[in-house]
Amino acid sequence: MSDIVFTNVARNFRRDGKEFPALRDINLSVRDKEFLAIVGPSGCGKTTCLRMAAGLEFPTSGTVAVGGVRVTRPGPDRAVVFQQFALFPWKTVAENIGFGLVANGVAAAERARRVADVLKLMNLAGYESAFPHQLSGGMQQRVAIARAYVLDPQVLLMDEPFGALDAQTRVVMQEELVRLARVNPRTVLFITHAVEEAVYLADRVVVMSRRPGTIREIIDVASVRAADSWDRFEKIEDVMDQASFVHLRTHIWRLLREQQAPDDH
């Protein structure tokens, strides 16, 4: 059981000596093996939510628990794909991907096998001995994703993982992620500001309000996906053509649009 439960979470930050609330009243549970996406205007606290689940940040009040255990520190059971990739520039692609396995005492032979598998999966074969700075942004991002996948974590925390990809690669990665989620389901907390991506990938989509971030609405996509059997399509554009998809997408767009407007009441 690896659910992520936010209970009455609030988080304040200090800026210029003044404390301000970044997140308020967050009550959310990402169910075991559920794919949950968070969308919201920038600065609404999406990354902060993810960091709290990762154990890199802590609530000012309330609790965050993963698998029923309160989160106190980061660990390889909750793999993070960072928005800035956070690759080690002095390590090769293969070393970056294998580092977590080395640190967790995985034997060399198994390590090599798992790294090779994930290299192939991420379409990085042939680049194992390149250094990150020799790769395009999109490839670096794939290495960052590979580094998280290879740990085979129960919980995957992804902060705008496809942000730096070009449109074609992005689509391939999205389809790949959906395929992976079917084959090997795990709990995913996925942050994005691409509404279509969220609807295509997620079981539920959380729409957040402007700062201080609160949960505006939670949209159930999984039931619509099942009812309209989106899974019969292999290509994302076929899913995106469905009236049910368009409907959800437009609904979320409207919610987000409301968040952009300055609220003067």
């Binding site: 990762a54 993070v80 800035q84 080690f88 640190a103 967790n104």
Partner: peptide
């Protein structure tokens, strides 16, 4: 050192001498 590099190492479970010699020192090299 970029804080997210240290966070990435901690997330991967890198600790002790491996953290010092594999992350801190190369990053500061």
């Amino acid at each position: 050192i970029e804080p997210f590099l240290i966070e990435a190492a901690r997330m991967l479970g890198v600790r002790g001498p491996r953290f010092v010699f594999g992350v801190l020192l190369p990053a500061a090299a």
